[in-house]
Simulated scan of single mutants.
Amino acid sequence: MTGTSEGPGATADGPGAVRKALRVLEALPDHGGVTELAAATGLPKSTVHRLLRVLVETGFARTDDSGYRTGDRVLALAGKVLYRFDPAVQADPALVRLRDDTGCTVHFAMRFGGELLYVHKVEPDKPYRMGSRVGMRLPWHTSAIGKAVLAELEPDAARALAGPGELPARTANSLTGWPELTAQLAEVRAAGHALDDGENEAGVRCTGAAVRDHSGAVVGGISVSTLALEHGMDELREFGPRVRAAAAEVSTALGHRR
């Protein structure tokens, strides 16, 4: 804050002043008044008012008839960040850790309109490779990631994505009735992760969990995939907490604040 009209007092706290300013800036999209911001940040109103003056002077905040608002400098900065933002790159560290922890293939898929597509895949060092590939479309009702996402949506939205009428079978294990799938989605919500017991591809099992973005919206999910000959369903269930933790890491990397 050096060089503002606040004088020496504005920089007296050094890093502490920066932290306080960031707290105010982070609360600004949801709170427009000094009193509200003070309550949201836990800072004295005098401190909030002083920091707001600096933020306005530097373009990171602005004022209107209803109070303070996020400034144009924040929007410009966000635009530059998003231009270079690649969700797959952001997710990679968590996916690599999950692969190393489980020894399984790890996938990251995202929603694009009404479709669910793989955007990243991390393979273990094994003599076989999964047939999945980046860009491949996933079915909503038979894949672990698809079910993990559907479980987080309102019933009407989930039904619209899964499709009308009887659901197509991918394997002999696929659920094709919406009532049966609805019951399974309730179990997914309770557990926090979904299972695919050879429902999408015969002989392949998966555990998946949903991923959220900065707005809290469910934008996709991650999964671990393995051969049924290598891991039983009990082991897949044991992977659940690890997959959920990795999904939370990816969500944080995408800006989600829990």
Rank of each mutant, 00 (worst) to 15 (best):
E6L: 07
P8W: 02
A10H: 01
A10S: 04
T11L: 10
G16E: 05
A17W: 01
A17M: 03
R19H: 10
L22F: 12
R23G: 08
L25T: 07
A27L: 04
A27V: 06
H31D: 00
V34I: 10
G42Y: 02
P44A: 07
V48K: 01
L52P: 03
V54Y: 00
V56S: 02
V56L: 02
T58I: 00
D64E: 09
D64S: 11
D65Q: 15
S66K: 13
Y68G: 06
R73C: 01
A76V: 12
A76E: 14
A78E: 10
L82P: 05
D86F: 01
P87I: 03
A88T: 04
V89H: 07
A91S: 03
A91R: 06
L95R: 02
V96R: 13
D101H: 14
C104V: 02
H107D: 09
F108D: 01
A109R: 01
M110A: 10
M110G: 09
M110H: 10
R111H: 02
F112C: 01
Y118H: 08
Y118L: 07
D125I: 09
D125H: 13
Y128P: 00
Y128W: 15
R129E: 11
V134S: 10
R137N: 06
L138M: 12
P139K: 08
W140D: 01
W140F: 07
P155T: 09
A157S: 13
A157Y: 11
R159S: 10
A162V: 03
P164G: 05
P164H: 13
P168C: 04
A169S: 12
A172M: 03
S174H: 03
S174M: 03
L175C: 03
L175D: 02
L181H: 14
A183K: 13
A183Q: 14
A186Q: 08
A186K: 05
E187T: 06
V188R: 07
R189E: 06
L195S: 08
D196K: 15
D196W: 14
D197Y: 11
E199L: 04
E201V: 15
C206K: 04
T207R: 05
A210K: 05
D213L: 08
D213F: 10
D213V: 10
T226G: 06
L227M: 14
A228P: 00
G232T: 09
M233S: 06
D234S: 12
R237E: 14
V243C: 07
V243G: 06
A245S: 15
A245Y: 01
V250W: 04
T252H: 12
A253Q: 08
G255I: 06
H256F: 14
